[in-house]
Design a binder for these strands. Structure first.
Lengths: 202, 202
DNA sequence: GTTTTTGAACTGACTGGTCAGTGCAAAGGA
DNA sequence: TCCTTTGCACTGACCAGTCAGTTCAAAAAC
């Protein structure tokens, strides 16, 4: 990477960081380009030198963030498999990876959830693609678990994957928003218990 | 109820219905008061005759919608208790009630999720109150289950409640957005299986 | 029973302000 | 020399909220 493109990359990163917190707090439309530029410590013109439009900046931000998440889920699953863990252990490791991600990038997560189920928005198709990549990682592990007899073959793979993702997402956002004092281990333990069906019975 | 106030109520209801779908699709800031008025078939002035501001219209909409949900969860729990069901059965009934609600008011649910974890917004405090009412219903049933020995006393009640709500919310929104063809029974069965820990094992 | 009055509900043109995006000359950096 | 960034003025569209005026059902007056 030459110095020019890395300089440019640094500017883009500053813009992502500024945009992600502002948009998470206020929403896309309520956040102005002037605000983003100011928080990034950059001139407004620079925003338009680096991105075609406010919408394009946002779409690239989405792609970038979900890319990180997908990567992190995938590597949690792979590492578990590499050291000979079961698929349920892999799911558990992915839950933890999800929590770590949300802990590190809470603003991105907020923004993602806020936009995911909207219809009729410019970036709808971007979002659909990017969501599918992340969910697919979970579905793959479920499918392998069923194939290997470790998971019941009666489970509904897409629905169960969505439910697991939702469980982690919502518990983690609640943790961040309303019970900051809890440790990541507490949250992980509670979710792990649900995954393993150790809720009912004593 | 006299004709005047029922006429007024009808206008407010039309405005709620118009606002909820538009805001679910586009978000609060991207939705204009002119659009809301137009879709409701009233003049813009009428919006301001009935509500102090765009924000107030939205806050009342939130209160109204979450009120319906809370009511519906509570009555599912109560009916189960009335016919002598267990607490786990009550949770199962509440999952179904949640799904029925989301099926009936998908737009409201979208909008609620999109706004819930935002910080620094005008209606933040309204939302906090209203969320707590709904989550409390789930927490109560969990607490009763633990007290009666039906649920493990090691579960973390607030986190488990949040995780269950998240599971239902996300699975249902995914169902609505990406797999409309599935029946409510399919979705319920998948979530019920997770609740009962019938995922791993064959 | 008919006319008049009242006032709540509603209307829609208008205002003041905001904001995305542009244009451009000059500066800084490799 | 070329790429990147700055600073800033400007435009045109858009939008929340206002307000003077209209409608009309029901109460009051006769």
């Amino acid at each position: 990477m030459d110095t020019q493109s890395s300089r440019r990359q640094a500017t883009r990163t500053k813009l992502y960081e500024a945009a992600v917190t502002l948009i998470a707090e206020q929403g896309f439309s309520a956040t102005t380009v002037d605000e983003i530029a100011e928080r990034a410590g950059v001139a407004k013109g620079t925003v338009y030198y680096n991105f075609k439009s406010k919408t394009e900046l946002f779409e690239e931000l989405l792609r970038h963030g979900v890319g990180l998440l997908t990567e992190s889920l995938r590597s949690a699953a792979d590492e578990t498999a590499a050291r000979g863990g079961t698929r349920v252990e892999a799911l558990d490791a992915m839950i933890r990876a999800g929590l770590v991600f949300i802990d590190r990038y809470p603003a991105f997560t907020q923004l993602y959830v806020a936009e995911l189920w909207r219809t009729n928005r410019a970036w709808q198709s971007t979002l659909l693609v990017v969501r599918q990549e992340a969910v697919a990682v979970v579905e793959t592990v479920l499918r392998e678990g069923v194939a290997g007899g470790e998971l019941s073959d009666e489970i509904d793979i897409p629905l169960t994957a969505a439910a697991l993702v939702g469980m982690v997402l919502v518990a983690a956002l609640d943790w961040q928003a309303f019970q900051r004092e809890r440790s990541i281990d507490d949250v992980h333990a509670a979710l792990s218990r649900l995954l393993h069906g150790r809720v009912s019975g004593r």
